Simulated scan of single mutants.
Amino acid sequence: MTAPIPPEDWPHRGASRIVPVSPHRWHIQTFGTGEDVLFLHGAGASAHSWHRLVPFLDHRFHMIVPDLPGHGFTRSPRGRSRLSDVARDLGALLTDLGANPRMIVGHSAGGAIALEMARQGVAAPERVVVVNGALENFRGPAGWLFPMMARVMALNPLTGFLLSSGSPSQVRGLIGATGTELDDEALAVYQRLIKRKAHVDGTMAMMAQWSLNDLNRALGDIEVPTLFLHGDQDQAVSVAVAERAAGLMPNATLRVLNDVGHIAQEEAPEAVADAIDQFLARPATV
Score class of each variant (00 low, 15 high):
residue 102 R to T: 07
residue 119 R to A: 11
residue 56 F to I: 03
residue 96 D to H: 14
residue 66 P to Q: 05
residue 133 G to R: 07
residue 277 D to T: 12
residue 168 P to Y: 11
residue 75 R to V: 13
residue 250 P to E: 03
residue 237 V to I: 15
residue 40 L to D: 09
residue 134 A to P: 07
residue 158 L to G: 04
residue 55 P to N: 11
residue 251 N to H: 04
residue 78 R to N: 13
residue 18 I to M: 12
residue 203 T to V: 08
residue 215 L to K: 05
residue 168 P to V: 11
residue 165 S to I: 14
residue 266 E to C: 01
residue 214 D to Y: 01
residue 135 L to K: 07
residue 238 S to Y: 02
residue 159 T to G: 10
residue 205 A to Q: 15
residue 189 V to Q: 05
residue 152 V to L: 15
residue 1 M to A: 14
residue 127 R to V: 05
residue 72 G to H: 10
residue 232 D to W: 03
residue 259 D to H: 12
residue 133 G to Y: 07
residue 142 A to L: 14
residue 42 G to T: 12
residue 169 S to P: 00
residue 117 M to G: 05
residue 170 Q to G: 05
residue 261 G to P: 04
residue 220 G to H: 08
residue 114 A to W: 08
residue 219 L to V: 03
residue 172 R to G: 15
residue 64 I to V: 13
residue 81 S to N: 15
residue 46 S to C: 11
residue 21 V to F: 05
residue 30 T to Y: 07
residue 239 V to R: 02
residue 185 E to F: 04
residue 141 P to S: 06
residue 223 E to N: 11
residue 128 V to R: 07
residue 256 V to C: 01
residue 196 R to S: 13
residue 271 A to C: 00
residue 221 D to Q: 15
residue 116 E to S: 06
residue 18 I to D: 02
residue 79 G to N: 11
residue 167 S to L: 01
residue 265 Q to P: 00
residue 228 F to P: 07
residue 21 V to K: 08
residue 279 F to Y: 05
residue 95 T to K: 12
residue 231 G to W: 02
residue 159 T to D: 10
residue 98 G to P: 11
residue 255 R to T: 10
residue 83 L to D: 09
residue 112 A to K: 06
residue 277 D to R: 12
residue 261 G to Y: 01
residue 192 R to G: 02
residue 185 E to K: 11
residue 104 I to S: 00
residue 160 G to V: 10
residue 229 L to V: 12
residue 82 R to H: 14
residue 239 V to M: 04
residue 115 L to S: 01
residue 156 N to F: 09
residue 10 W to V: 08
residue 89 D to W: 08
residue 286 V to M: 10
residue 105 V to W: 06
residue 244 R to W: 05
residue 194 I to Y: 13
residue 97 L to S: 05
residue 79 G to I: 13
residue 3 A to D: 01
residue 98 G to A: 03
residue 159 T to C: 10
residue 85 D to T: 14
residue 214 D to T: 13
residue 100 N to A: 14
residue 198 A to I: 00
residue 209 Q to M: 10
residue 38 L to A: 04
residue 68 L to A: 13
residue 268 A to K: 12
residue 88 R to M: 09
residue 239 V to F: 01
residue 76 S to V: 10
residue 26 W to A: 02
residue 156 N to L: 12
residue 102 R to G: 11
residue 57 L to A: 13
residue 96 D to G: 09
residue 186 A to R: 06
residue 255 R to E: 14
residue 78 R to Q: 14
residue 212 L to D: 03
residue 228 F to D: 04
residue 169 S to Q: 14
residue 147 P to Y: 08
residue 168 P to N: 07
residue 257 L to C: 04
residue 261 G to E: 02
residue 27 H to F: 03
residue 221 D to V: 00
residue 262 H to K: 04
residue 99 A to Y: 08
residue 33 T to M: 09
residue 8 E to S: 13
residue 230 H to N: 11
residue 110 G to D: 04
residue 79 G to L: 06
residue 57 L to I: 12
residue 10 W to A: 15
residue 110 G to N: 06
residue 136 E to W: 13
residue 205 A to Y: 05
residue 120 Q to G: 03
residue 196 R to N: 13
residue 267 E to L: 00
residue 159 T to H: 11
residue 241 V to W: 02
residue 76 S to K: 07
residue 20 P to A: 14
residue 148 M to Q: 11
